[in-house]
């Protein structure tokens, strides 16, 4: 069974009398331990697709299934609880709570899940150390570089051991070397821990770290490529 599956999922926006199909009948399957990149030009529907996968948006048509469970029938509170346990999320920006330290930001996911114990704390520190942030545990986000903040977000997305990790343009504000470092670390952790990972990126160089690259244009999946 796929960890993540969409069945002809569509999202339509109505603007000034016209209909915009932001995501148009997209079907995909992602297996545990697989890292998939969603690529495409700006406005192609990548982020809307990611939002549908996370249950942040309801599809107008089709189904999103996570571990075989359909998100369609879930109410808002149920979706939030589901997201909390099954999904790890990183964003382009505004990733971290500004008044929590690096360690506290990562532990926040465990607190939200009611699972902050000795083991969880140790896992948080281990992940942060792995992401080369072992000496930054007590720093606030404002004391970190953009790349470091992204790595904290990656740790937060993984610490509660979700089945799916979603990343929206994680390298958007990073220089090239930092971007490579962040994406390769994300890919390694997803592979090692057997999560299903989806990364939205318009930078094809970053897509090289993915197992598959799905190209979107005008809301449709137009091409699928398997990387070496």
């Amino acid at each position: 069974m796929s960890t993540l599956e969409t069945q002809s999922v569509s999202k339509i926006y109505h603007m000034q009398g016209s209909e915009i199909r932001a995501v148009d009948a997209v079907s995909l399957q992602i297996q545990p331990g697989e890292f998939v990149a969603l690529a495409g030009p700006s406005g192609s529907g990548k982020t809307t697709m990611l939002a549908l996968l996370a249950g942040l948006l309801h599809p107008d048509d089709g189904e999103v299934l996570i571990n075989g469970r359909s998100l369609r029938t879930m109410r808002k509170a149920e979706l939030a609880a589901f997201r909390l346990t099954h999904i790890g999320f990183t964003f382009q920006s505004n990733n971290l709570v500004p008044y929590l330290t690096v360690r506290e930001n990562v532990e926040l996911m465990l607190r939200l899940n009611g699972a902050l114990d000795q083991q969880g704390r140790a896992r948080a520190v281990e992940l942060l150390t792995r992401l080369d942030l072992g000496k930054r545990l007590d720093n606030l986000p404002s004391q970190l570089s953009g790349g470091q903040q992204q790595r904290v977000a990656i740790a937060r997305a993984l610490v509660h051991e979700p089945s799916i990790v979603l990343a929206d343009e994680p390298t958007a504000s990073l220089d090239t070397s930092r971007a490579h470092q962040v994406v390769s670390t994300l890919a390694n952790l997803i592979h090692e821990q057997g999560r299903a990972g989806v990364m939205v990126s318009h930078d094809l160089r970053m897509c090289a770290y993915a197992d598959r690259v799905l190209h979107m244009e005008d809301g449709r999946l137009v091409e699928e490529a398997v990387t070496a």
């Binding site: 808002k76 939030a80 997201r83 971290l96 709570v97 500004p98 939200l112 937060r156």
Partner: peptide, 16 residues
């Protein structure tokens, strides 16, 4: 707004 949106996105409930 951004902070609340982020908390909601990662799964925090509206009540929280």
């Amino acid at each position: 707004v951004a902070q609340i949106g982020m908390l909601e996105a990662i799964g925090a409930s509206s009540r929280m």
